[in-house]
Design a protein around this nucleic acid. Structure first.
Lengths: 246, 246
DNA sequence: CGCCTGCTTGATCACAGTCAAAAACGGTGG
DNA sequence: CCACCGTTTTTGACTGTGATCAAGCAGGCG
């Protein structure tokens, strides 16, 4: 069994090392990156839409999301960033970002300078881990597309809750009964392609069914098997099964 | 101005070289890959869902798509592969595929053996081009998510037509009045998260508006500015502007 | 010519959106 | 501790986009 890095201390290292075991030099580089960090208030942009990008970043604590805005102001959230996730890598590749990244809750974030991004790709071990991470992100995006295109409102929410359950488990943020979910129903609506009114009613249905409970920015999962069945959820695509957490 | 490789002859090389100019050795490797190819009939799978992957492939002619099936048989198409596109790279990274890739029309396809995939990533120039290509694919997926989540039926179709217009232009498949679109209205429905009935009615509306015409597997664009306005389409995210084609 | 697939049309239905307002919650400051 | 404020959640009445069901109509191809 591999030695465990405290996921709480450096979730990004734990995540990448879990995809592909890294030599000590690579691990040291990743540790150095996360040495310096800052707190960011909720609802602030880490990357702005349609602007040149300056480097990338790692989320160490809190929830952030990728999103796009239409001219009318309509918002579509296209992905969540949870502790351990790296954002802005594709923006770095293109030197420009087609979408924004904003915080949903207070976030502790470590910046990765553009030169450092290059240094990461230059190390074969890290490069391979980042490729896997990118492939998983693409798989998540596909699953979201299935949700929005071909699942009912409760099914979409159930699938999202199952996805986050597995991802947060991998970084030790899930306890017996559930996990923190510091997002509003408006955020959930913009995630699932619904209105907040409809999200509210769907959540009440799910609660009445004894599946979940969402109160005080925390999701309690009351019946995981039935929740997964409702979403037709199979965690294989996240490549996180069988991980231990600190 | 850089020398032009006949896009018709090797669209994948043209595409990657356009993202990041490649040294001759890299170009030779890419040419070698596409030396051998085979024809595949429509509606056949190049990669099957939930199965281990064996290498990747390049589409040289024809249309293919990534898709996922629900247990009920409902299908969601998550991306199109047109000439020059490489498929199965993420499946190679994970040694397993969460989604299927199937042909929409007859396709000419070149196989890339697993060892060759490794050789591609080992070359810094190709690796960088593939990273950019992956970032563009992610941007396309985000745009689709916005479509399905936050755009009306005609807007979704308009956006898809605009996307394909730019992508096919980059490989020289667009003529004065339009481009080949060898897909059924059922395929379009599974792309846009609609039913084929609704796609049919939306297409008729767009035709009546003088925007497009879709007949005999060919899309004619009658009013590109208005089509783009309807979709709020900005081609920047495709990173293909200002390319010349053979 | 006949069949199959894909396109078109019509009638009806339901899921989700819209609009509007009230209630609950969570901070903040007095 | 409580009054106040903005945000978030909840509720109700109504509307509409897009789904469903079902049938007819090309058009391509053997």
């Amino acid at each position: 069994m591999r030695q465990l890095v405290s996921a709480g201390a450096n979730p990004a290292l734990a995540k990448l090392d879990g995809f592909a075991p890294l030599p000590e030099a690579d691990r040291a580089l990743l540790r150095a990156i996360t040495a310096e960090h800052r707190w960011v208030t909720p609802a602030s942009d880490l990357i702005r839409q349609d602007e040149p990008a300056e480097g990338a970043f790692v989320v160490l604590e809190g929830f952030a999301c990728r999103y796009k805005l239409r001219r009318s102001g309509m918002r579509q959230i296209t992905g969540y960033l949870v502790p351990g996730d790296i954002g802005g890598l594709d923006a770095a590749a293109l030197a420009w970002s087609d979408h924004a990244v904003g915080t949903l809750s207070p976030c502790r974030v470590a910046r990765i300078a553009p030169e450092t991004v290059g240094a990461l790709h230059a190390r074969p071990g890290i490069a391979a881990a980042l490729r896997i991470s990118g492939a998983v992100d693409a798989a998540i995006a596909r699953e979201w597309l299935v949700s929005v295109g071909r699942r009912s409102a409760p099914e979409r929410l159930a699938h999202l809750f199952c996805e986050l359950h597995v991802r947060l488990q991998a970084v030790g943020l899930v306890s017996e009964d559930g996990y923190p979910l510091p997002v509003t129903q408006i955020d959930l609506a913009d995630t699932a392609g619904l209105t907040s009114v409809h999200v509210n009613r769907s959540l009440q249905d799910m609660r009445r069914e004894g599946l979940i409970e969402l109160r005080k920015r925390r999701l309690r999962i009351l019946d995981l098997p039935r929740l997964r069945a409702l979403a037709e959820f199979d965690p294989a695509y996240l490549q996180l099964t069988g991980r231990e957490t600190a």
